[in-house]
Simulated scan of single mutants.
Amino acid sequence: MRATSRSQDAVRILLIISTAAEPISSQPADPALSDAVAVLESQVLLQKLDFWVRNPDFLADELLNEYEQGGDAEFLELAGGILTSDEPEVRRYPMTRFLFGAYEPLDDALAVLRSAHLVVRRKRGSAGGRVLRHDYYLTQAGRAAADRILLDAPAFAYFVERTQLVARLAAGYRGSKLKERQYRQDEYRDAVIGDPIATIAPRVQERWRLHDQKRQTPASAA
């Protein structure tokens, strides 16, 4: 199973938080959050967004769902750009099926971001000794670092583009809703706990091909 490096994880998670976090309406009382500018609420949401960034085949399938629901050809083109490239093979980093869906430990990546004061993690609530939620606050330094990535490290341009697309696709959804969407995939739902979630690239490529073929067929010939 292909694995990411600690630096890749840190950059990818920073970009996800930077693009998907919601602006803070009122400054928290916590002194450590005095320069926070946005917050991404819940580890569930972070993990589900990360799953789509790491699995282009599943992302392309969601883009096809958007196309079918709204008919916007842009989504079909975006899916085609993924499926006709080598992304599903060389850009895919599988995630493990855990108790509540796709999961990958993020502690090392978050340690990098927290040590540089780019992201501040805060625990919210507890029940029976279990933390109910983790929130991830983006600081001013974190926003500046995310904005500088393309200038300082052009090699990460792919992740910049992908995190922006994923954030757009997930806008308005909480982590629990994204989990429901991902569980609709048989390969995701039926994966054995502890095993990597299998690719769906072949059937998504066929699904895209049929849509693209239909779009290019003149109405008179249909």
Score class of each variant (00 low, 15 high):
Met1Asp: 13
Arg2Ser: 08
Ala3Glu: 15
Arg6Phe: 02
Ser7Asn: 12
Asp9Cys: 06
Ala10Trp: 02
Val11Pro: 10
Leu14Pro: 07
Ile16Val: 13
Ser18Pro: 08
Ile24Tyr: 00
Ser26His: 12
Ser26Tyr: 09
Pro28Cys: 03
Ala29Pro: 01
Pro31Gly: 02
Asp35Gln: 04
Ala38His: 05
Val39Asp: 06
Ser42Leu: 01
Leu45His: 11
Leu46Pro: 09
Gln47Pro: 07
Phe51Ile: 11
Trp52Ile: 10
Val53Asp: 03
Asp57His: 02
Phe58Trp: 04
Phe58Val: 14
Ala60Asp: 06
Asp61Thr: 00
Glu62Gly: 14
Leu64Lys: 05
Glu68Ile: 07
Gln69Ala: 15
Gly70Gln: 08
Ala73Ser: 14
Glu74Gln: 13
Phe75Lys: 13
Phe75Tyr: 15
Ala79Val: 09
Ala79Cys: 06
Gly81Glu: 06
Gly81Leu: 03
Gly81Ile: 03
Asp86Gln: 12
Pro88Phe: 00
Val90Cys: 09
Arg91His: 13
Tyr93Gln: 07
Met95Asp: 10
Met95Tyr: 01
Leu99Arg: 14
Phe100Pro: 09
Ala102Trp: 00
Tyr103Pro: 05
Glu104Cys: 08
Glu104Thr: 15
Pro105Phe: 00
Asp107Lys: 12
Ala109Ile: 06
Ala109Tyr: 01
Leu110Gly: 11
Leu110Arg: 07
Ala111Glu: 13
Leu113His: 07
Ser115Asp: 15
Ser115Ile: 04
His117Pro: 05
His117Cys: 02
Leu118Cys: 04
Val120Ala: 11
Arg121Phe: 02
Arg122Lys: 14
Lys123Phe: 01
Gly128Pro: 05
Gly129Lys: 04
Gly129Asp: 05
Val131Leu: 02
Leu132Ser: 12
Asp135Met: 04
Tyr137Gln: 06
Tyr137Glu: 05
Leu138Val: 08
Gln140Val: 10
Gln140His: 10
Arg143Tyr: 05
Asp147His: 08
Ala153Tyr: 12
Ala155Ile: 13
Tyr158Asn: 10
Val160Glu: 06
Glu161Ile: 00
Thr163Ile: 01
Gln164Phe: 01
Val166Arg: 02
Ala167Met: 04
Ala170Leu: 09
Gly172Leu: 02
Tyr173Gln: 14
Arg174Cys: 06
Ser176Thr: 13
Ser176Asn: 14
Lys177Asn: 12
Leu178Met: 14
Arg181Lys: 12
Arg181Ile: 08
Arg181Ser: 09
Gln182Glu: 12
Gln185Leu: 07
Glu187Cys: 03
Tyr188Trp: 14
Arg189Tyr: 08
Arg189Glu: 08
Val192Glu: 15
Val192Phe: 09
Val192Trp: 08
Ile193Arg: 11
Gly194Phe: 00
Asp195Arg: 11
Pro196Lys: 01
Ile197Gly: 05
Thr199Trp: 00
Pro202Thr: 09
Val204Glu: 03
Trp208Ser: 10
Leu210Pro: 08
Leu210Lys: 15
Gln213Tyr: 08
Lys214Thr: 15
Gln216Glu: 14
Thr217Met: 07
Pro218Val: 01
Ser220Thr: 15
Ala221Leu: 12
